[in-house]
Simulated assay, not measured.
Amino acid sequence: MPVHGEIVLGFDPMDEVHAHFEIQLATALACPDDRLLQCIGELTEHLKHHFAAEDVWMRDSDFPPAQCHIDEHAAVLQSAQEVLPLVAQGRLSVGRAFVRELANWFPAHADHLDSALAAWMSKQRFGGKPVVIKRAAAHHH
């Protein structure tokens, strides 16, 4: 069964990625200082895979507003990569602020950008004109 988090968009592969993200975000929000660097590192790794998967879905499916969505992913990753060395130097407050910002950013991003992509993917997969789905089709449980 797919894992579902707080935000469920009805496109299982994306809902699963989001559920894992929510778990990692909750872990990072609650983690002790001595694990903050590790938590943000894991969160950053997750984001790389999460965003890469969505970027591939957008490109493969010719999602119309893809560039804006891909740019937002790139901006978030850029921030994560700037925060990591600061946390490594002991600037934990910067790391905590970043994790909080991420927690604030994600629901709106999922609501506006990801939900549009989920609807687009579902429509292409289950209705509308037939579309050849690469890679994603092998992801069924």
Rank of each mutant, 00 (worst) to 15 (best):
W57M: 13
L9K: 00
H112Q: 15
A28W: 09
H140G: 14
A137W: 09
E42S: 06
Q124T: 02
R91D: 13
I70E: 09
A97N: 05
L77D: 03
E42G: 04
H49F: 08
M121V: 03
A88G: 11
S93D: 10
L9W: 03
Q24S: 06
H73P: 03
V87S: 04
G41F: 02
L25C: 09
L9Q: 00
D114A: 04
A30C: 09
Q78H: 06
H112L: 15
S122H: 03
A116R: 07
E101Y: 06
K129E: 04
V131I: 05
G41K: 03
V87H: 08
G90M: 07
W57C: 10
C31M: 08
A53S: 14
P130L: 04
H140L: 13
T44P: 02
L84N: 10
R125P: 01
W57E: 06
G127E: 14
L86H: 11
P64S: 07
H69E: 15
V99C: 11
H50Q: 07
L117I: 07
Q67M: 13
L37G: 03
G90I: 11
F11P: 01
V76Y: 08
L86W: 03
L117M: 06
F11S: 06
A74F: 06
L29F: 03
K123F: 04
F63R: 05
G127M: 14
P2Q: 04
E82L: 05
D71W: 01
L29A: 09
A136P: 02
D34M: 07
H4N: 06
I23G: 10
L9A: 00
L9N: 01
H69N: 15
P107M: 12
H20Q: 13
R125M: 12
P13L: 01
P130A: 07
A80N: 12
K123R: 12
E16M: 09
M1Q: 00
V94I: 14
G127S: 11
E82F: 01
H141S: 05
A80G: 15
F126H: 08
P2L: 05
L9F: 02
H50K: 05
A110K: 05
D62M: 10
C68S: 15
A118W: 01
S93I: 08
G90E: 14
E16F: 10
A30E: 14
R35C: 11
E101A: 10
